[in-house]
């Protein structure tokens, strides 16, 4: 086991522990700090899994926007000690069967995927071109090998190369290529979110 694998497991376990702390803490502010801890550990996990763009966005969006918004609302409403020790008494009766059901369905769903995946799928050397067609063979030389106008990581051929996987070029190529419709729809979702949150919190004329 090399150092990066050890770190990967370490950060994953820390993230899972942070997740438990989010649920177990009695003070909402402590929960929020535990959530931040979880998010940052997950960002480290993503970085170690070569998902560089996702790791950066995890820190910016979750650590910088979502957790801050949550902490801000806790501060605004001053409700941090409300929950004290009280949990749902009968909740376990619902929660336990639900967890077992989830476990069953989840296991049933992931086992085929888990069996199919290879151990190492990222390439380090030249890219093998399918069927003898021209493709971007060398992904880190700054030369447009196949002459299609896309150099190195910008070429989708290089998506599985170690130097390109998970970079802005690679993910952006997917985002503005096959996934352009979901990408555009997500902007409508964000707009709806903005309008909705303003509408929900705006006070009516004459309201206290």
């Amino acid at each position: 086991m090399d150092a990066s694998t050890v770190l990967l497991y370490l950060f994953t376990i820390l993230a899972a522990g942070g997740g438990v702390a989010v649920v177990m803490q009695r003070d909402a502010v402590h929960s929020a700090v535990a959530l931040l801890f979880t998010m940052l550990n997950l960002a480290a996990v993503y970085a170690l899994m070569q998902a560089h763009l996702i790791a950066a966005l995890q820190v910016v969006i979750y650590g910088g926007a979502i957790v801050i918004l949550i902490v801000y609302i806790i501060m605004l409403l001053d409700v941090r000690s409300e929950d004290a020790v009280r949990w749902f008494r009968t909740g376990w009766l619902v929660a336990l069967p639900m967890v077992l059901l989830f476990a069953l369905l989840f296991g049933r769903a992931i086992l085929p995927v888990s069996a199919r995946a290879s151990t190492e799928s990222l390439l380090t050397g030249d890219i093998p071109c399918v069927g003898g067609a021209k493709c971007e063979q060398v992904c880190d030389d700054g030369v447009d090998t196949d002459g299609d106008g896309l150099t190195d990581c910008k070429d989708p051929d290089c998506g599985r190369h170690m130097a390109c996987y998970g970079t802005v070029e690679s993910v952006g190529g997917h985002l503005l290529g096959p996934f352009v419709l979901p990408f555009e729809v997500s902007s409508i979702l964000l707009l709806a979110g903005i309008v909705g949150s303003i509408l929900l919190t705006a006070r009516q004329e004459g309201e206290r």
Partner: peptide, 30 residues
């Protein structure tokens, strides 16, 4: 899974979940 299969499409899904999470928190807090 994206790392195991060497396919960046999984990262696009994560970006979509980021968007959903951000909107959910904004509306939820409102």
């Amino acid at each position: 899974v994206a790392r195991q299969l060497g396919d960046s499409a999984g990262h696009v899904m994560v970006l979509m979940i980021f968007v959903v999470a951000a909107v959910e928190v904004a509306i939820g807090m409102a």
